[in-house]
Simulated assay, not measured.
Amino acid sequence: MERVELARDLVLGYVRALNAIDEAMRVAIPSLERLVDVLGLARSRRISRSDRVGAYFYKVHGAGCSFVGDNGIEVDVDFAADGSEIFDFWRLRRYGLSLPDPLDVTDQDLRSAAQSLQPPVTEVRPGWFSVAN
């Protein structure tokens, strides 16, 4: 498979994993309207800054949160000022390296892949992406 195709699959897999985490967290924490609400709940001490919820261990950090599933797959995400989920090449590469068959792709391949996926992926600032609604 071509490197850019592998990178496309990685980006799409990350997006699917992020959507699955969003759904699982909202089921487990009914007061959660959007994934970004995890930050507010942790900062207000209504939930712990790190804990296990369902099949995921989460850890709140700075402007985002890291999730690790029971399968060992890691999804790290930051949140923009409007609460949208954003990610960069570093987060995509970490996700790829955590897969059962680790996938290490270059930033250039990820850039090409993300650009070819617009939409559903949108570049919100140089090197940072979001999933179009």
Results as ranks from 00 to 15, higher is better:
A80L: 13
R94V: 07
S66N: 10
I29H: 15
A24T: 07
L117D: 06
R46L: 12
G40H: 07
R3P: 04
L41Y: 12
V105F: 00
V4A: 06
D22E: 14
V105I: 02
G40Q: 06
A114N: 07
A7K: 01
A28M: 04
V4F: 05
G54M: 10
L92C: 01
T106K: 04
R34L: 15
D109R: 00
F89E: 15
D9L: 06
N19I: 14
R111M: 10
S130L: 14
R8G: 00
I29M: 15
A80W: 08
L32D: 08
G96K: 01
V124I: 06
A81P: 06
A7C: 06
D104A: 08
K59D: 13
E123I: 02
E85H: 03
G64N: 11
G62P: 13
A114R: 04
D37A: 12
R125S: 12
L18I: 03
S130A: 14
D82M: 09
V75L: 01
S31E: 14
Y14E: 02
A20Y: 03
R45H: 12
A132Q: 11
G64M: 11
Y14S: 01
C65L: 10
W90M: 09
F89T: 14
S50A: 15
R94E: 06
R16K: 07
A132T: 13
L99P: 01
Y95T: 01
E85N: 05
T106C: 08
R94I: 05
D101E: 05
I73C: 01
P102M: 04
C65K: 02
T106I: 07
R45T: 09
